[in-house]
Write a protein that binds this DNA or RNA. Structure first.
Ligand SMILES: NC(=O)c1ccc[n+]([C@@H]2O[C@H](COP(=O)([O-])OP(=O)(O)OC[C@H]3O[C@@H](n4cnc5c(N)ncnc54)[C@H](O)[C@@H]3O)[C@@H](O)[C@H]2O)c1
Ligand SMILES: NC(=O)c1ccc[n+]([C@@H]2O[C@H](COP(=O)([O-])OP(=O)(O)OC[C@H]3O[C@@H](n4cnc5c(N)ncnc54)[C@H](O)[C@@H]3O)[C@@H](O)[C@H]2O)c1
Lengths: 232, 232
DNA sequence: TCCATTTTGTTCCCACGTTCACAAACTCCT
DNA sequence: AGGAGTTTGTGAACGTGGGAACAAAATGGA
């Protein structure tokens, strides 16, 4: 018999749904902040910018948290989604590469409020090490292992130049990090069991440019495309 | 007869393919930089981090630019992809909201080298206006219309707080911007014909957290998921 | 109690995307 | 010239995701 935790009903949540859950969470938080205690799937779908049928199907993968004829309790659903995503507790995160982008990330308050805590800023540049950024002292990259072990870090952010990205990723993986968010415009290869997601500004702009060019050529675009993160 | 440009063979490139073309472009540039003049679909697929069959199918939507038994000419294919995406000339871009993130974006050199040119930095904060960021003087948000008309800007970047995002988007659309890259964690609604892509760091981290939680619970993940931008 | 109304959860079907597998097309060697 | 070897381009099978539509379940009023 394999070890099973609590009410594990062999639930498999489609990747596309997983990518939307954070959007629903954000929309629910906004609704709660404006004092709304109950909402229909239509209301929430509008706030999240999706089709209501899709929203209901997405939520149905988590369980039956609504009431027919009534709708969803905002706080309750919010908690259920947060629990499903795993952001009811904070995740420790390290950021490697404290240049232009690393500084912005370090100063970003949205981290903390959404379930993440920056436990360390790392850089290879000796001139940067020791300086304080957003109230956190930058430490040498070689401290990575010590920090990861001390705080039990599972998630690492790469904000170094593209050439260093694979090296940094290799070091992260070797030390036990199993989730990487990569901002460098480079493909990083990792072993099975490690997740990598990339954020690439230039790619996003190029996708927009492609559609822009088509518009200029008089082509009729079928629908407006919104950016989103999928999986490969 | 409808107006058709040059060799327009009613080509419709799937959205998923469009999202990967910039990755191929980057990989080809890297190959060219290391002096490689010809490559097989296998080589390029490895460099781009995708399956070779998928790569070949993607390229086949553009045309037949390879030679059977030989492979692809790196420079030639690179130009064809750049042309298809529309980055053989530079696209003028405006950035609105020059805070932490806006500063980083303004200082990002990768823009220029990938077909984009920042023509203006805009902010609503009078204290910021007039100051120079990355060699460009920050201008008041109200100058948006003038700038867009002068430079024929089609692409706008939103890096303001979430609360301001919809307002900024509305102004952009009213003035004629038809592609928006939104960094604010907010759903922005736009009319048909306008494309919006979003980049949301917190969502990416939350997706990683979800999978991380599953790993911790002993669930067997089917495969490592890499981040990518799809369309809605 | 019963019926009208509301809204969820789910089923069914279609479109899109991915991968396999192979014929077609090219090179190179004998 | 011909055959062996290589690699592209694509047809077909499969899987995932999206959306319409509807039965099931709740509320509230008569
Ligand atoms: N600045 C942006 O707005 C932006 C936007 C999109 C993507 N990016 C990408 O993000 C990455 C960072 O961009 P940036 O503008 O902050 O660059 P940057 O050059 O300002 O900063 C890079 C930092 O990484 C450090 N570094 C280099 N090698 C390292 C290593 N091996 N280990 C640890 N640290 C190392 C450097 O010391 C430097 O502080 C780049 O890959 C860039 O292409 C940046
Ligand atoms: N800093 C990050 O690393 C980071 C990461 C992910 C997402 N974001 C998001 O990006 C956005 C910007 O983040 P930030 O850290 O740079 O915030 P910030 O507060 O440092 O900067 C926001 C800037 O926008 C300007 N602004 C506000 N309202 C405006 C308006 N109506 N018109 C024009 N300008 C206006 C402000 O004056 C300020 O300069 C936020 O929505 C944030 O959630 C930031």
């Amino acid at each position: 018999m394999t070890t099973r935790s609590s009410t594990d009903a062999a639930r498999v949540i489609p990747e596309a749904t997983v990518a939307r859950l954070p959007v629903y969470l954000r929309a629910l938080t906004a609704l709660a902040d404006s004092g709304i205690r109950t909402c229909s799937s239509e209301d929430l779908a509008t706030a999240a910018g999706v089709n209501s049928a899709k929203l209901r199907k997405d939520l149905s993968y988590l369980g039956s948290y609504g009431t027919r004829g009534v709708g969803y309790d905002v706080d309750y659903l919010r908690y259920q989604i947060a629990r499903e995503i795993g952001v009811t507790q904070d995740w420790p995160v390290v950021i490697v590469g404290i240049g232009n982008l690393g500084h912005a990330l370090a100063n970003y308050s949205g981290f903390r409020s959404r379930g993440f805590r920056i436990v360390a800023l790392l850089d290879a540049d000796p001139d940067l090490v020791g300086r304080s950024v957003a109230g956190v002292v930058v430490r040498p990259f070689d401290d990575l292992e010590e920090i990861v072990r001390e705080h039990d870090v599972a998630i690492g952010v790469i904000a170094t130049p593209a050439l260093a990205a694979q090296d940094v990723a290799d070091r992260m993986v070797a030390i036990g990090i199993t989730s990487i968010l990569n901002f460098a415009p480079a493909v990083v290869a990792v072993p099975d069991g490690v997740d990598v997601r990339k954020v690439d500004l230039s790619i996003e702009l190029q996708i927009l440019a492609y559609h822009e060019q088509r518009k200029a050529n008089g082509a009729v675009e079928p629908a407006a495309g919104a950016g989103e993160g999928g999986a490969a």
